[in-house]
Structures are given as structure tokens and as C-alpha cells.
């Protein structure tokens, strides 16, 4: 694993950027449609570098989101963990899916994530039930092929 270190560096950089993106204020409408970039990265790195980006990594990412946004510690952490678990479980299959198939899978993962967060919201208090809540699932899905293209190019160049 000669390039393990550089891969770890890439993971750190992209994670930090995604975290900054998560708290960056955008205009109001865009704010609600902001794709869950960090979650997409967790899925990507779980597929691309499963030994570095394990379940613990996903949990830490979710916990970071809890710290900066969440009303409750552990809410996003457990949702991230579940998504990472499913990704790891099906990684051998997901990695060889054609891109449209993979995007569809990511769509389902994002919808599941949003549902878990929504569910926990509903347990701890009155949850927001607007349809706008599900827009990040769509934007995140649309972002996936782009993200894969960019990061794959970067990974290949740095291999």
C-alpha cells in the first residue's frame, strides 16, 4: 500500500472541504437544496478506499455534522453509519455497476439517509414535513456522477 498515505491525505482534504461546504451559507432557496456532499464523499471513499474509509470514518463524519448543525449528538452519526455499512456491504457489486445504475443506488441511499434523519427528528420533536426536505436527495444524486468523474480523475493521476 505505497499510496496509502496520499489517499489518506486526499480523504482528509475532501472531507474538510465538504464540511466547510456544509456550513457555508447560500441564498435561501439554494440552502434548502444543498446536496449532502459529505455523505456522497463517504460513499465514494467507502467504495474507493474501503480500508482507510471504514465505518469509523463514516461515523466521525456524521458526528462532525452533528457538531456543526445537529440538534442532537449521534443523529447524523447513526445515519452516516447506516449508509456506510450498506455501501461496504455491497461495495463489490456497487463498484462495477455502470454509472447510471450506481447513481440510482446512490439515490436510494440518500433517500434512506434523509428518512433516518427525518425519523429521529420526529422522535425528538416536531419534524418539518415539507416536500423541500427531499430536494437534497435529488441534488445529491445529480451531483454523484460529477463527483465520481472528478475524484476518479484525481485518483488516477495520483496513483
Amino acid at each position: 500500500m505505497a499510496d496509502g498515505g496520499s489517499s489518506g491525505l486526499r480523504i482528509t482534504i475532501t472531507t474538510l472541504l465538504a464540511l466547510i461546504f456544509a456550513i457555508a451559507p447560500l441564498p435561501d432557496v439554494m440552502n434548502q437544496a444543498k446536496p449532502p456532499l459529505l455523505l456522497l464523499l463517504v460513499i465514494y471513499w467507502s467504495l474507493s478506499a474501503p480500508r482507510i474509509a471504514g465505518l469509523m470514518f463514516a461515523w466521525m463524519c456524521g458526528f462532525a455534522i452533528d457538531v456543526v448543525k445537529g440538534p442532537l449528538f449521534g443523529q447524523h452519526a447513526v445515519a452516516y453509519l447506516l449508509i456506510a455499512y450498506l455501501t461496504h456491504k455491497f461495495q463489490l457489486r456497487m463498484r462495477i455497476f455502470p454509472i447510471y445504475h450506481q447513481t440510482l443506488t446512490v439515490f436510494m441511499l440518500l433517500a434512506l439517509y434523509e428518512f433516518v434523519v427525518f425519523w429521529i427528528d420526529g422522535i425528538i420533536g416536531p419534524a418539518v414535513t415539507g416536500w423541500m426536505r427531499w430536494v437534497p436527495v435529488i441534488t445529491g444524486t445529480l451531483l454523484w456522477p460529477l463527483l465520481v468523474a472528478v475524484l476518479d480523475t484525481w485518483n488516477r493521476a495520483r496513483r
Binding site: 500500500m1 499510496d3 496509502g4 489517499s7 486526499r10 465514494y44 467504495l47 474507493s48 478506499a49 474501503p50 480500508r51 482507510i52 471504514g54 465505518l55 469509523m56 461515523w59 447513526v78 453509519l81 447506516l82 455499512y85 461496504h88 456491504k89 456497487m94 463498484r95 462495477i96 455497476f97 455502470p98 454509472i99 450506481q102 465520481v148 476518479d152 485518483n155 488516477r156 496513483r159
Partner: peptide, 26 residues
């Protein structure tokens, strides 16, 4: 398609099983 970037070693058989880790963290 996502390329496997860093590690091509088999991931099975190292540390506790995936399901166990998931369970503990959950």
C-alpha cells in the same frame, strides 16, 4: 464506475466483521 484507489488487499478477515463493527457503533 468508482476505481479502487488505494488498497487492493482483501478486506475480509481483518479485525471484527463488518456487521459487528456496525452493531457496536450503532
Amino acid at each position: 464506475m468508482v476505481t479502487l484507489s488505494s488498497d487492493s488487499r482483501p478486506i475480509i478477515g481483518h479485525g471484527p466483521a463488518l456487521g459487528a463493527r456496525f452493531f457496536f457503533l450503532a
